[in-house]
Design a protein around this nucleic acid. Structure first.
Length: 474
RNA sequence: GGCCCGUUGGAGAAGCGGUUUAACUCACUAGCCUUUCACGCUAGCAUUCAUGGGUUCGAAUCCCAUACGGGUCACCA
């Protein structure tokens, strides 16, 4: 049987990194098996749906390079692919369960249910399950929800792709609602019906769904559907080992934000794929195709995946460095323009700006930060750098260089380089004792980009001002 | 609280009973390269796998307990 997997987001907001990962692994699985990847929209909670939710999900999935075989815009014969367009189907199957006595009408109001739970809690009940109060209620002319009558003494066992054998006792599951009072199915019911009808063979999802599995299994069993294979991936956690919550400020959570910061989709794809999965290769910079080739569900990890921002930056930097000049420029220009950097400068100026900072960029927008850091008005030399520059011979070197720079009309990187060399010759300074003091005097730091290029970019006025400033301390 | 799950270096992680004196990557440190910086290359960085028992000729790897961390218990998905 050919593999069919699905990603089933609810359109409640932006594409979250955790959901993106679920989508990505399903995609990897489908592509590596020559199967189909389906995107199904689970929009049964009207209150939480967001107008742009579907668009947002789909467009950022595309941005990441995750394309699908079937969805709302691409019929594969198993549609509709949006749950609110499938209500008749759910009603039909709910009726079957009702007729079979596997489901029953519940007339309890949410207030009653809440009160019931509160009371049970107070009484010290271990399991806060529905009391089955309505199980034998005669039909009434009142709105009702449909509950699934959970069988007694049944063990639900399934072999989980990542966790191995998993078991749940039916006693641990209370009679749960399958159809809400408004005739809309609940998640567990709709998902089970759809997975079966859409012939989904493998369900790869987050571990937070693992306790939903027995519910979905009992629906499938009751309806005589064949069960898919399940795999529950561990959650993504922050550095405090907490599940990534949408309110967590320490980590950027949404794909859109990474896009906006100038992260590259190929890098994001790579990084996300490494969250909870480790390919059987030493290399970590992997293209989409390589990841498809390496993908193996047996290598999904069983312990939580920690979101390592340093690693993301490293990976993205690697991809940025691999970009050709044109693409890099296309990535960076919008950020520079938006920040008003380089107004009135020519193409060559932008090219050299980009060339100077290319290797140091973790993400596109960082160019703005690096620029401001580099060109800032307040300039000072201190600490280790100041000590270095206080060594013998530095002062004559720097003042020679200063005068040469001041008296040269057209400065460019090559000219600057030869002026540095000349100054070295004239004062007997060479090697590290030539370049390092120069670097410190114009940048204040012992580390930085290529010296002549960077000096050219700084411009004559700033070079002279900084040299004077440094000289005044010697 | 019930039910599930996890715990390997500063960080991310391999490892699935025996040449593992625990891969690889990031970070860090040192050396080489480069007349500086960065890149690149090389080396160093856990005698030990949460703790305590047990099984075994042999355990990070299997079992049990404890501790810690997490997930889940909605007419949300």
């Amino acid at each position: 049987m050919s593999v069919r997997v699905r990603y089933a987001p609810s359109p409640t907001g932006h594409l979250h990194i955790g959901n993106a990962r679920t989508a990505l692994f399903n995609y990897l699985f489908a592509r590596s098996q020559g199967g189909k990847f389906i995107v199904r929209i689970e929009d049964t909670d009207a209150a939480r749906n967001v107008d742009t939710g579907i668009d947002d999900q789909l467009s950022y999935l595309k941005w990441l390079g995750i394309d699908w075989d079937e969805s709302i815009d691409k019929d594969g014969g198993y549609g509709p692919y949006q749950q609110m367009h499938r209500l008749e189907t759910y009603q039909e199957f709910a009726q079957k369960l009702l007729d079979a006595g596997v489901a029953y009408k519940c007339y309890c109001s949410s207030e009653e249910l809440e009160a019931e739970r509160a009371w049970m809690k107070e009484q010290g009940y271990e399991k806060l399950h529905y009391s089955r109060k309505c199980l034998h209620e005669p039909d009434q002319d009142k709105p009702y929800a449909l509950r699934f009558k959970v069988p007694d003494d049944t063990t639900y066992t399934f072999h989980d792709i990542v966790k191995g054998k998993v078991q749940f006792q039916s006693e641990d599951v209370g009679d749960w609602v399958i159809m809400k009072r408004n005739n809309v199915p609940t998640y567990n019911f709709a998902a089970a019906v759809d997975d079966a009808l859409m012939k989904i063979t493998h369900v790869l999802r987050g571990e937070d769904h693992i306790t939903n599995t027995p519910k979905q299994l009992m629906v499938m069993d009751a309806l005589g559907f064949e069960r898919p294979t399940y795999g529950h991936m561990t959650l993504i956690v922050n550095e405090n080992q907490k599940k990534l919550s949408k309110r967590d400020e320490s980590i950027i959570q949404f794909i859109e934000q990474y896009h906006d910061l100038g992260f590259l989709p190929e890098a994001m794809f790579d990084f996300i794929a490494l969250l909870g999965f480790s390919p059987n290769t030493k290399e970590e910079i992997l293209s989409k195709q390589e990841l498809i080739d390496w993908f193996d569900p047996d290598r999904l990890s069983t312990s939580p995946a920690t979101f390592d921002q340093d690693k993301l930056h490293y990976i993205n930097n690697r991809y940025i460095k691999a970009l050709d000049d044109e693409s890099l420029k296309a990535l960076l220009l919008p950020f520079l323009n938006e920040a008003g950097i380089g107004k009135g400068e020519d193409d060559a100026w932008f090219d050299s700006l980009i060339a100077v900072f290319k290797d140091r960029l973790s993400y596109g927008k960082q160019i703005v930060e690096l620029y401001h850091d580099f060109f800032k008005e307040s300039f000072s030399v201190s600490g280790e750098a100041l000590e270095f520059v206080k060594q013998d011979g530095v002062k004559p070197l720097l003042s020679t260089l200063r005068d040469k720079l001041a008296s040269t009309e057209d400065l460019d990187a090559d000219t600057i380089k030869s002026l540095i060399k000349e100054s070295g010759k004239a004062t007997g300074m060479k090697g590290k004792m030539l370049f390092m003091p120069t670097r410190i005097a114009v940048s204040g730091s012992m580390h930085g980009p290529d010296l002549p290029q960077m000096m050219n970019l700084l411009g004559k006025a700033k070079l002279l001002a900084r040299l004077d400033e440094t000289l005044s301390k010697l």
